[in-house]
Amino acid sequence: MDIADDISKYRVTRAPPDVYYIPNFISIEEEDEILKHVYGAPKPKWTYLSNRRLQDYGGVPHKRGMISEEIPQWLQKYMDRINDLSVFDKKFPNQVLVNEYIPGQGIMPHTDGPLFHPIVTTISCGSHTILNFLENNVQRDKICEFLLERRSLIIIKNDMYTKYLHSIDETKFDVISDDTVNLEYCCGEYNTGETLERQTRISVTIRNVPKVLKVKITT
Rank of each mutant, 00 (worst) to 15 (best):
K45S: 14
I130E: 01
I7G: 08
L54D: 08
D80M: 12
N136H: 12
R53V: 04
R11L: 07
I67C: 03
P17C: 09
Q139D: 11
F92D: 13
N137M: 01
M66T: 15
P114F: 02
V120K: 01
E70T: 15
T111F: 03
I3E: 14
Q55A: 05
M66P: 15
Y57R: 03
T111M: 11
Y101V: 06
N137I: 00
N83H: 11
P118L: 04
V138W: 07
T111R: 14
D56W: 12
D112Q: 00
R14S: 08
P72L: 06
D89R: 14
D112E: 10
S86H: 15
P114L: 08
S124D: 05
L134M: 11
A15G: 03
I22F: 00
K91C: 01
V38M: 12
S27P: 06
G113P: 07
L134C: 03
D6L: 03
P44F: 03
L97W: 05
I3G: 11
Q95R: 13
I82V: 15
A41I: 02
F25Q: 13
D89T: 10
L134F: 10
I22K: 01
Q95L: 05
I102C: 13
F116D: 08
N137S: 15
P23A: 04
M66V: 14
P93G: 08
K91N: 13
N24A: 04
P16S: 10
E100G: 00
T47I: 09
R52K: 07
I26H: 06
P103S: 03
V138I: 07
G104M: 02
G40D: 01
S50K: 12
N51V: 05
Y39M: 07
E135K: 12
D5C: 11
P16G: 13
T47R: 09
V87S: 06
Q76F: 08
K43L: 04
V96Q: 15
K43T: 11
I123R: 08
N51P: 03
Y39V: 00
Y101T: 11
P118W: 07
S127E: 04
V19E: 04
A4E: 13
T47W: 05
L115T: 03
P61I: 14
H62T: 07
D2F: 14
K91A: 05
A41W: 04
G40C: 00
Q73P: 01
G104D: 04
G113F: 02
P17S: 13
D84C: 12
V96S: 14
L85S: 09
D141S: 02
G59H: 06
D112G: 04
V138N: 13
C125G: 10
A4S: 15
I119L: 14
D80H: 15
P93M: 02
K63F: 10
Q73T: 12
E33R: 09
E69T: 10
I119T: 15
L54K: 05
E70C: 05
Q105A: 12
L131R: 00
I71G: 10
D112A: 01
D6S: 11
F92H: 13
D84T: 14
R14Y: 03
V98C: 13
K63P: 07
I28P: 05
Y78W: 15
F88A: 00
I130P: 01
T129F: 09
H117G: 01
L75I: 12
R81T: 07
I130A: 05
